[in-house]
Design a binder for these strands. Structure first.
Length: 602
DNA sequence: CGTTCTCGCGCG
DNA sequence: AAAGCGCGCGAGAACG
């Protein structure tokens, strides 16, 4: 970049450096997605041009603020949702992207008019960022601390076994090409690959076979029936190649840095409940391994040809999918310390609702799933399968699920049950943990009443209040608030056909990504709060880990992973660190299980 | 031809 | 009494 191109100002950069040297002593630096800004500042201005380093703690991020206030992530959508005066300059953004990429002839776009528009885009962006930073409430101090930790973790990155990733991609490409060739032959040259949903469905139906949709379940059901061999082969190929999980190897290859680490994969407060979400190589949905010895599979992946690998693992794609977690490895001279919170949400739910019987069970170490199974089945001799149903009830019925949905959920998880049994399970849960059910109605009523009166109110461990922008706030025991923007009351028709008042608010729809009207009810509110409290416990533990010599590399909702110098720490110290709870959570019955190893696994 | 929507997958 | 919830990404299909 020519020096006079810097924001269109022709003053010598040296003056800026002096200005920054002074400013860095006492100023904070604000940006929307400050991680990006930090990368550019550190790697270009500091490393190449000698500007002064800005410590993480002097950065602030309006994207983090927007997410924590249950508003959209992107600057564009956030300014729209807030009705800001300054909106994102979309045309300018298009120019920026154009100037970033080579043109068709491989040269660079150097149109001076485009540069003028680029400068204006930068100015507009700063105006929009300033305005929303002003409109949005600051993070509370505790959350600001968690955001600093988030930035540190995202900069630190995660060590990846890049050699094995490369080998797995070779296997995947060869194997899927072979399989697609077979599909091509078997379909009479009608289908070149099985990922074309509509084309495959049309073809299957043309073969006289009925198929409702193209989900794994739909395909499996059809495969169980009497069908032509060609259809069997094509649908079998769909199941093998339909594992989106294998695409994660591609994601890894595309996002790993030259030093073998992936960075910037966590989004602070990505979910409205405060949970971290993921991007690039999304860590929150890595498939669990379905094979016994993943270490062995990865060793074969390293040393064998595809043909050799296939002898040990005929389900090549399934085996590779099982190896993905193992691509995350400890850094040189380090070990992974991994800790998992046992049934964190069920425990937090009882604590939130002051459900004393459930709390006592967890404190006493009762097998709570067996206890629930006894109540459902009415016997005392509980089989493994019956305990499984008890577990599904304990983990699934805390947020108001009805028996029809419960039966569906069980079937989807491979344990189909009768409607009668589903009814008994739901009733058993509600009878046993009455305070949980009372919590649904209490929180819903409190939220609605505060929305109506605008006066703050306690409800158990929660405080509800309205802020000056009309956002309904749900203050958690940690002091953090969940936000329900533009809250208002309106009638809805319930699933059972009744008309009743419901809490409405604006939100980013998690599937459509659009800003729109939503409404909520007791079970959902309790779920939001429970998930949020579990996240607060996790965040507090991550911070403790960091300060006690367990450098955190990521977390997955109920699990913390640290990359620790070999021999410097014990597992017991780590588990102890995770088990502590902040003062606000005294009495929450937490249990942690940990392990140490060189490769990540589940 | 590039962007947006929809479906399907996998996790807690 | 009643209604589980929270995510992101890839690929294809639809749209402009």
């Amino acid at each position: 970049m020519r020096k006079e191109d810097f924001y269109g100002v022709t003053t010598a950069p040296v003056e800026y450096i002096e200005f920054f040297r002074e400013a860095v002593k006492y100023q904070t630096f604000h940006a929307h997605n400050a991680f990006f800004e930090q990368c550019m500042y550190q790697n270009i201005l500091v490393k190449k041009y000698g500007w002064p380093r800005i410590p993480i703690k002097q950065w602030r991020c309006s994207m983090a603020k927007s997410l924590a206030y249950a508003h959209p992530q992107s600057l564009d959508n956030a300014t729209q949702a807030l009705g800001a005066m300054h909106q994102k300059n979309k045309a300018g953004r298009a120019i920026m992207l154009k100037l970033c990429k080579p043109n068709k002839n491989g040269g660079w776009n150097e149109d001076p008019e485009d540069f003028e528009k680029l400068y204006q885009y930068c100015i507009d962006d700063v105006a929009a960022e300033r305005e929303i930073d002003r409109l949005l409430p600051d993070l509370i101090p505790q959350e600001q601390t968690y955001w600093f930790l988030d930035q540190l973790i995202n900069q630190r990155g995660i060590s990846i076994d890049t050699g094995s990733v490369k080998k797995a991609l070779d296997f995947i490409h060869t194997y899927s090409e072979n399989l697609n060739n077979i599909v091509f032959e078997q379909s009479g040259m009608q289908l070149d690959r099985v990922t074309r949903r509509q084309a495959v469905l049309d073809w299957v139906r043309s073969q006289g076979i009925e198929i409702p949709g193209y989900t794994k379940g739909d395909v499996k059901t059809v495969l169980e029936g009497e069908i032509p061999e060609a259809v069997r082969i094509v649908l079998g190929a769909k199941l093998e190649l339909g594992k989106t999980s294998v695409a994660k190897y591609e994601a890894l290859r595309n996002s790993v840095g030259d030093d073998g680490r992936i960075r910037d994969t966590l989004i602070y407060h990505g979910a409205t409940t405060g949970r971290w979400t993921g991007k690039l190589f999304q860590l929150q949905n890595l498939p669990k391994s379905s094979i016994k010895n993943t270490e062995q599979a990865i060793a074969l992946l390293k040393n064998q040809t595809l043909e050799g690998f296939e002898i040990f693992y005929p389900d090549v794609m399934g085996a590779l999918s099982s190896c993905i977690r193992g691509m995350i490895i400890a850094s040189e001279g380090c070990e992974l310390f991994v800790g998992d919170y046992n049934a964190i949400e069920a425990r937090v739910l009882f604590w939130l609702c002051e459900e004393e019987y459930g709390l006592k069970q967890y404190r006493d170490g009762t097998d709570i799933y067996v206890d629930m199974a006894k109540r459902i089945y009415g016997g005392s001799d509980i089989s493994k399968l019956q305990r499984d149903l008890g577990k599904r009830a304990v983990l699934g019925c805390g947020y108001g699920m009805g028996h029809v949905k419960f039966a569906q959920t069980c079937a989807a998880q491979g344990q189909p049950i009768t409607g009668d049994l589903a009814e008994r399970a739901v009733k058993a849960y509600r009878d046993t943990y009455g305070n949980v059910c009372r919590g649904w109605y209490a929180q819903e009523n409190a939220a609605i009443s505060v929305c109506h009166t605008k006066q703050s109110a306690y409800c158990g461990r929660i405080i509800w209040k309205m802020d000056s922008r009309g956002t309904l706030l749900c203050q958690l025991p940690s002091g953090r608030c969940l936000a329900y923007p533009n809250a208002f009351l309106e009638y809805v028709e319930t699933p059972w056909g009744e008309r009743k008042i419901a809490l409405h608010y604006m939100a980013v729809d998690s599937t459509t990504k659009r800003w729109g009207k939503e409404h909520t009810y007791g079970g959902k509110i309790i779920e939001n709060i429970t998930q949020a409290i579990a996240r607060d416990l996790l965040a507090a533990a991550m911070l403790r880990c960091e300060s006690r010599g367990f450098p955190v590399i990521f977390s997955v909702h109920d699990e913390i992973v640290a990359d620790v110098a070999e021999g410097s720490k014990t597992l017991q110290e780590f588990e102890q660190c995770l088990c502590e709870v902040p003062g606000w959570a005294t009495g929450a019955p937490i249990r942690v299980e940990g392990w140490v190893g060189r490769r990540y696994k589940k």
